[in-house]
Each structure stands twice: as C-alpha cells, then as structure tokens.
C-alpha cells in the first residue's frame, strides 16, 4: 500500500504528444506505470509510440480505456481547460505538471474541484511516485526505492534531494508527492500529510515547504492535533528578500506573512523535527525514526 497511485492506477496523458510530455510519458511507461491512453484534441484515432490509443477527449479515454488518473503536460494557456475537462470526465486524480498557469484560471479550477470528487496534484509540480509501481510526472525514478517514508514537497529538485538522501541511507519511500509551487494548488501539505497519516504502509513523513502562504502552518496544526508518526521538515527561503517572488509563483513573503521564520516556529511548536540545512533532511528524520 501507498497513497493515491499504485498498480491499480490507469493513466491518461493529456498533451503527451508534445516533446516534453512524450519524453516523460515514455520514462513513466518504462518505469512500469500503466498508461492506458493519450488525449490530444485533433489527433484522435492515431497511436502514441505506436501503442497507446490517442483520443480527442478525456471522456473517450475514460469510457473506452477505463482511465482513472490523468497527467497534464499541456502549455499554460490551455492547461486549466485540460484540468476542467478531466474533472468533467470524472477522473479521480489529476496531476498537472504545467508551470505558469494564470492564477485566475486556477481560481476557477479550484471552484470546480470543490464541486467534484476529483483530486488535483499541482500544478507546477514534478508529479507523484509510488516507488516500484507507479511514477507519474517528471521525477527521476532511480532516486527512489520502495519503503515506508512518505515525502511531500512544494519544490521539485528539493524533493529529489530529500528522496535521494533517504535512498542513499537505505530508507525507501511509500509515496513521494510534489504538490507544486503555485499560490493555488489542488492538494495541500495538510491533505498529503493526512493521507500519509491514514496510510498503514507509511511510518514516517518528510514535509518540505518554502516561503509564501500559510500551508505549512496549517499542516503543522494538523500534525500537532492528529499525527503520531515521526515527522521531519525543511523550509526553504529563510534568506529570501520580502516582496520578491523566488522563482515559484507562490514563493513570496508579503506584508510580513509567509516567512520561513514563522513556518519553522509553527513546525517546531508542533513537535516536528526541522532540518537546519537541506543536506540534513533525511538525517533529521532518521534521528527520530529508526525504520
């Protein structure tokens, strides 16, 4: 067991016939992820890599191939529309890799999500991986191995950093989730932590946050009230100047809120072990979790 994705996952790739999407979809398939269809409007009837059927709509991919999960590699101006189409088609889990979707479009998507049972991961995220069975998105598979630590992060390469540290120290992961660096995202830190907490196969949790918003503080409050499993955390951006967006659209300290200092204080108050540097993320967890 793990969370959200595994052997039962049937993926439809939206926009995987482009360069970027096809490269990563191929890698995901090589990893053993079960892709059942692709959707590229106008290319319906042909095949991706001479195997996967391509449809014009997500609805067809659901009806004909039983797709229950979608991954989106569609360019930013059209990505919100792709998410909305997946929601309308009744896809259970949508993973949106696209970076640069306008906030206004995501506000509309968020509203549609509230009125549906679809879960969104991302956008602007590396994806999700249950090591050994399913890797959806752009995470390199070799950095991970099956195990019992759940990892959730707003940043891509910082996720790799933490996951690889764990793997090199002989500790595998139940599931690794990149929730994305945008101000509006589908799955929050709290959502991911709750899922890991309820997952019997996850014994410990690593949460990686960064400046901007209050998602880490909310997760800290949840952990304080509900989580008995060991949790380690790292927050990036302690040296970021206020008022500047640090690469990620959501990484900004505004009006004194969203600072690394406040997040670290909330995490410590919740009894979470906070890594002093990004090199110490795995070791910080392994001090409180022997595996």
């Amino acid at each position: 067991m793990a969370i959200l994705v595994g052997p039962e996952t049937r993926v439809v790739g939206q926009g995987i016939t482009g360069n970027f999407g096809s490269l990563h979809a191929r890698k995901n398939i090589e990893y053993g992820t079960k892709y059942v269809a692709a959707v590229t409007p106008g290319k319906g009837g042909s095949r991706f890599e001479e195997k996967l059927p391509i449809f014009n709509t997500v609805h067809e991919a659901v009806a004909k191939e039983g797709a229950n999960t979608s991954v989106i590699f569609v360019p930013p101006p059209f990505a919100a529309d792709s998410i909305l189409e997946a929601i309308d088609a009744g896809i259970e889990l949508v993973i949106c890799i696209t970076e640069g979707i306008p906030v206004r479009d995501m506000a509309v998507v968020k509203d549609a999500l509230r009125k549906s049972s679809t879960r969104l991961i991302g956008p602007n995220c590396p994806g999700i991986m249950t090591p050994g069975s399913c890797n959806i998105g752009i995470m390199p598979g070799y950095i991970a191995q099956p195990g019992k630590v759940g990892v959730v992060s707003r940043s891509g390469t910082l996720t790799y950093e933490a996951v690889y540290q764990l793997t090199q120290r002989g500790h595998g992961q139940s599931t690794c989730i990149g929730i994305g660096g945008d101000p509006i995202n589908g799955t929050s830190h709290t959502d991911a932590v709750r899922l890991f907490n309820e997952d019997p196969a996850t014994e410990a949790i690593i949460m990686i946050g960064e400046i901007g918003g209050t998602a880490e503080e909310e997760a800290a409050a949840y952990i304080k009230a509900h989580v008995k499993k060991p949790v380690a955390a790292f927050i990036a951006g302690a040296t970021a100047p206020p008022g500047r967006r640090m690469g990620h659209a959501g990484a900004i300290v505004s009006g004194g809120s969203g600072t690394a200092e406040a997040k670290i204080a909330a995490l410590k108050d919740a009894g979470i072990a906070v890594a002093p540097t990004p090199s110490d993320i795995a070791d910080t967890l392994l001090e409180i979790y022997k595996g």
């Binding site: 390469t157 950093e161 990036a236 040296t239 970021a240």
Partner: peptide, 23 residues
C-alpha cells in the same frame, strides 16, 4: 536548477557564514 533548491542553496550559504549574491 529548481526554485526550491535555489532558495535552499542561498539558505545553506548563509547557514555556514557566507552571504548569497543572488537567487
């Protein structure tokens, strides 16, 4: 490479007594 890692790199320079010139 990567915004989160770039911020974390600035942070670790500061942690060891240096001063980052940029993100």
């Amino acid at each position: 490479n990567g915004a989160g890692l770039a911020m974390a790199t600035m942070d670790i320079i500061k942690h060891f007594g240096g001063n980052p010139a940029n993100f």
